[in-house]
Amino acid sequence: MSDVHALAGAYALHALSDIERAAFARHLAECESCAHEVAELRETAARLADGTWSVPPPRLRDNVLAEIRQTRQLPPAASERVARGAAPAAGGRRRRPLVVAAAAAVVLAAGAGTVSYVAQEQRVRDERATVAALRAESARVEAVLAASDARLHSAPVTGGGQITMVLSESLDGGVVMLSGARPPGAGRAYQLWAVSSGAPDSRGVLPSGEGGATRLIDRIRGMDTLGVTIEPSGGSAAPTEPLVASVPVES
């Protein structure tokens, strides 16, 4: 990433992949000259919207005005730690709008060389689920993502979708994201399992019927593989179905 500064233009045009965008946003927090350049290039790119005027249907105005009356505003910056589209990280975060979904890979994309290639090839899509999880457990998620030993692991899910996880050995915890998987069916849910030499041990059940979600897991030390099965809502004590995904934790 020696020429990381050169990404300022692509960043201002939203032309980076989620992972690269997250990595560059991280760079912005440390590089004042890029931060200033991005501010100006964004301002410039926004002028390209001038040429796109199109009168929206009148109902849009009514709908928007009705919706804002039901919508609570966020307090001014800094008082709430996790805003949609802002990285849950300390310091300088106002100038670091991030894809929250990609935050999990920030550490890797910006840090460890071998993993960053893998990370760039992935698109983490289920932003909404990630945001929900981050709101609920932002501090711990943040800690895992920011851990210096955080590592990204990923595998496809049978039938479509991707399971991505960021593990921190030192914190003995991880963030697991399931994205784009087929819905497990009514009354069923994806369940996560830590697989090591002994019997699989549950690490949590995703929301019923959801094909995408993010979950904070603990007790990851010694885990060889993260397995995923589809179980009745609420989960099972032991897997009752074959694995639909298995993510090896190679060290």
Binding site: A39, R42, T71, L74, P76
Partner: peptide, 18 residues
């Protein structure tokens, strides 16, 4: 987008652009 503008208006930083 427009609802987002309402929701996050407090995050706008005039020092970083218009």
């Amino acid at each position: 987008v427009l609802v987002e503008v309402w929701r996050t208006a407090g995050r706008f930083d005039p020092a970083r652009g218009s």
